[in-house]
């Protein structure tokens, strides 16, 4: 089996660190993604996690997001969460923890919410 690949990219827009994830976030890709996210987490300032490229989110993947939320002390917002993943996150209560920004990173209201 090939390891699922998750691409992580990052940019800064108007003082907000935008981190994009692409691929399957599960028990096998999770530990690597988690390390990468911790490295990319800025000392302070808002973080926007763009989920629009995530094609699958498992229980372990969910925990990667939860750990990021804890490590960032509530500074992380999500954007572009695909509907099916949003359903899962809502069902497990995780969505309530994150501020969910608009569906696109370019949504101007994002940083204010």
């Amino acid at each position: 089996m090939t390891e699922p690949v998750v691409l992580v990219d990052t940019s800064v827009r108007d003082g907000t660190t935008v981190i994009g994830l692409t691929g399957e976030l599960d028990g096998r890709s999770g530990p690597g993604v988690q390390r990468r996210l911790m490295e990319l987490l800025p000392e302070d300032g808002r973080v926007l996690l763009d989920m629009s490229g995530v094609t699958y989110l498992s229980s372990a993947g969910l925990r990667v997001l939860l750990l990021l939320h804890r490590a960032a002390d509530g500074r992380v917002a999500l954007t572009g969460v695909p509907p099916e993943i949003e359903t899962v996150m809502a069902a497990t209560g995780l969505l309530d923890l994150f501020r969910v920004a608009g569906s696109s990173v370019t949504d101007s209201s994002v940083a204010d919410r």
């Binding site: 989110l57 498992s58 229980s59 359903t87 899962v88 069902a91």
Partner: peptide, 12 residues
């Protein structure tokens, strides 16, 4: 669990 297909019924 709505999240059962993802194996998250315990969390839900």
């Amino acid at each position: 669990a709505a999240s059962g297909p993802y194996g998250m019924q315990v969390d839900e």
